[in-house]
Design a protein around this nucleic acid. Structure first.
Length: 532
DNA sequence: GAGTTTGAAACT
DNA sequence: CAGTTTCAAACTC
C-alpha cells in the first residue's frame, strides 16, 4: 500500500466554502422543488444522515484543524452530504444540483451486509431492500470501505465515479466535503489509468439485466472492457466481475478454468439450481410427491430435443446466465415446466454449439411439466368451492323438505353428486383436456395405479378413503345406514358432506394427474430413447 | 456475526 | 511486467 493518500492530502482548502455554497444552493433547490410542487423524494434529503454525522465526528477526531469552522459547519455538511453528486463526467446534471442519478453500478452487496458500525438512513435502506426484493435493484450499492477512505478503486462508489451516499463506509472522503482531496486522488488514478473511471462494462448493468429478462439470452456483445482474471471461482461466482455483471467472459478475460461462457453446463446448472420463489418451491414439492406417487424417478428422464418447446425444456431457448436473475423468471414459466426450474441441463443453443443432452444430478424434470398449470390449480380450487357450496345447498334443501322420504332424498343426492362432474366442468379453455378429465373421479383408475408413496397417501387423505369408497360406489350408498355421515343432521352433516365432496373431487384430480404423468413419462422415455 | 476466500487494485 | 500486499466484497460456517 503506497498510501500516497494515507497521509491526509493537503489541499482541503476551499472545501468548507464549497460546502457552504453547496448548502445554500441545496436549501434553495429544495425549496424551489417544493414550491414547484415537484415530487421531492424524501430520501433525497434526510434531516440527519448517520454517515455524515459519523464522518463529521471522525473528521473532527482525525483532522482537528478543520474544526476551526464555526459550529454550523457541522450541520451543513450533513445536509450537503445528501446531495452529493457524482462528478460531471458521470452525471450530465450539474453535480451539485440534484441528487446524483448514479449509473447503476455492478451490484454487490447482499442485503444483509449491513455492518453495525454505521447505520444508513432508514429510508434509503428500506427503499434499497425493497428494490432488491423485487429483483430489480435500482439504487446503487453502498460501500463498506474502512481503510481506503473511499478514495481508491476498491471503493465501488469511488470507482464508479459517484459520491458515497448512505454508505456504511468509515472515514469517507468520497464526498463533497473532500472534493478537492477526492479530485486529486482521481487525477492521480487517471494519470495511471485513464480508463479507470470508465464503466467496466460497455453497456450499463441495467441494460444487462433487461437483456437477461428478455428471453434470458445474454447479449454477448457486452463485454467487460478489461476482462476478469479469475482463477478459482470458475467465473461463476460474484467474485468475477463478468459474472457479477451478468455477462459472459470474453476474449478480454484472462481467467482460468472459466465456466462463464455460452453453453457452459456448469453455468446453466448454477442458474437452474437457484432457489425459486416459494410458489415454485411448492410446485416442485408437489410435483415431487406426485411423481413419487406415479413411481417415477424424475432423474434420468431423457430429455426431449424439442428445443423450441419451452414447455418441455425450461429455458431451452435461453442461455441463462446468472442465478441472480432467476427471480425475474415468471413463476408461470417455471410452473409450466414443472420441477424443471431446478433442472434441465439440456443445452440447445444451436447446431454449432456443444450441445449436450446431458443428465446431471440436478437434472430433474417432472413428467407433469406442461400439464399442470397454475390456472388448472386455480380452476380446480374454484370447482372445489363450487362443489362445497352445492353440498351445503343440497343439505339445506334437504332440511326444508323434511317430509320427503329420507331414502329418496339420499338417492337424489347421490345422483346429484354423480352428475356433478359433467355438470360443473372447469371453466375456461382446456386445450389439453386435463381440467375436464380431472374433474371426473374414477375410482377404477385409481385402483389400477401402482403402489403409492407415503407422501402421496398423505396427500390423498388416504385415511378417509374408507368413507370415499363407500360414497363412490353407488350401490354401497343406496342403503342409508352404510353412510354414517348421511345419518347426521344439521351443520355437522353439511360440513361432512362438503368435506366428502371436496375430498372426492380432489382425489379424482390427483388420480387424473397421476395418469397424465404416467403418460407423459412414457412419452418422454420414448423420446429419450430415440435421442440416444 | 466472525472468519475465510477471492480477485481487483495497489504497490514494489 | 511479475510478484506481493492490501482491500473490500463474496462466501462459508
Amino acid at each position: 500500500m503506497g498510501q500516497s493518500e494515507k497521509a491526509s492530502p493537503a489541499p482541503e482548502k476551499a472545501e468548507f466554502t464549497a460546502a457552504k455554497k453547496q448548502l445554500d444552493f441545496t436549501v434553495n433547490f429544495k425549496a424551489s422543488m417544493l414550491d414547484s410542487g415537484a415530487s421531492f423524494n424524501g430520501n433525497v434529503i434526510l434531516p440527519e444522515h448517520p454517515q455524515a454525522q459519523l464522518q463529521s465526528k471522525l473528521l473532527a477526531l482525525s483532522q482537528p484543524k478543520k474544526l476551526h469552522a464555526n459550529a454550523s459547519s457541522q450541520s451543513p455538511p450533513t445536509v450537503v452530504a445528501q446531495l452529493k453528486s457524482p462528478p460531471g463526467t458521470v452525471t450530465p446534471v450539474a453535480p451539485r444540483l440534484a441528487r446524483p442519478v448514479k449509473p447503476m453500478p455492478v451490484p454487490r452487496h447482499k442485503p444483509t451486509m449491513q455492518p453495525i458500525v454505521k447505520v444508513a438512513s432508514p429510508k434509503s435502506r428500506e427503499r434499497c431492500n425493497m428494490e432488491q426484493m423485487e429483483g430489480t435493484p435500482k439504487k446503487k450499492k453502498q460501500c463498506n470501505c474502512k481503510s481506503s477512505r473511499c478514495l481508491k478503486l476498491y471503493c465501488e462508489c469511488f470507482s464508479s465515479g459517484t459520491y458515497c451516499d448512505g454508505c456504511n463506509c468509515l472515514n469517507c472522503h468520497n464526498n463533497i466535503e473532500h472534493e478537492s482531496d477526492r479530485k486529486d486522488v482521481m487525477d492521480v488514478i487517471k494519470e495511471r489509468n485513464p480508463e479507470a473511471f470508465k464503466p467496466k462494462i460497455a453497456n450499463s448493468p441495467h441494460k444487462a439485466r433487461d437483456s437477461m429478462v428478455e428471453g434470458g439470452e445474454l447479449t454477448v456483445e457486452r463485454k467487460h472492457n478489461k476482462g476478469c482474471n479469475c482463477k478459482k471461482s470458475g467465473c461463476l461466482k460474484k467474485y468475477c466481475e463478468c459474472f457479477q455483471a451478468n455477462i459472459l467472459c470474453s476474449e478480454n478475460c484472462k481467467c482460468l478454468d472459466c465456466k462463464n461462457f455460452k453453453g457452459s453446463e456448469e453455468r446453466k446448472a448454477l442458474f437452474h439450481g437457484h432457489p425459486m420463489n416459494s410458489m415454485t418451491c411448492m410446485q416442485q414439492a408437489a410435483n415431487a410427491v406426485i411423481n413419487e406417487a406415479i413411481g417415477l424417478s424424475g432423474f434420468g428422464l431423457s430429455q426431449s430435443k424439442r428445443n423450441g418447446n419451452q414447455q418441455i425444456v425450461f429455458g431451452s431457448t435461453t442461455d441463462n446466465q446468472s442465478n441472480s436473475r432467476v427471480s425475474q423468471i415468471h413463476p408461470e414459466t417455471c410452473l409450466t415446466s414443472g420441477a424443471s426450474c431446478s433442472t434441465s441441463s439440456v443445452h440447445t443453443s444451436g447446431p454449432k454449439s456443444t450441445a449436450v443432452f446431458r443428465l446431471s444430478k440436478s437434472s430433474y424434470r417432472s413428467p407433469l411439466a406442461g400439464i399442470l398449470q397454475p390456472r388448472h390449480v386455480e380452476e380446480f380450487c374454484s370447482l372445489l368451492v363450487a362443489v362445497s357450496a352445492e353440498a351445503a345447498k343440497s343439505r339445506s334443501e334437504e332440511k326444508r323438505t323434511s317430509n320427503t322420504d329420507k331414502a329418496t332424498l339420499e338417492k337424489a343426492e347421490i345422483a346429484d353428486i354423480q352428475k356433478q362432474p359433467s355438470a360443473r366442468r372447469l371453466p375456461g379453455n382446456h386445450e389439453n383436456g386435463v381440467q375436464t378429465s380431472l374433474s371426473e373421479s374414477t375410482t377404477g383408475e385409481f385402483q389400477n395405479e401402482r403402489p403409492v408413496s407415503p407422501g402421496t397417501l398423505a396427500l390423498m387423505c388416504d385415511e378417509n378413503d374408507i368413507v370415499f369408497t363407500k360414497v363412490d360406489i353407488p350401490s354401497s350408498i343406496s342403503g342409508s345406514n352404510t353412510r354414517t355421515n348421511m345419518n347426521l343432521h344439521g351443520s355437522d352433516h353439511v360440513y361432512s358432506e362438503q368435506e366428502r365432496l371436496v375430498l372426492t373431487r380432489f382425489r379424482g384430480f390427483l388420480n387424473k394427474l397421476i395418469t397424465r404423468g404416467s403418460i407423459k413419462e412414457t412419452e418422454l422415455e420414448q423420446e429419450g430413447k430415440k435421442n440416444l
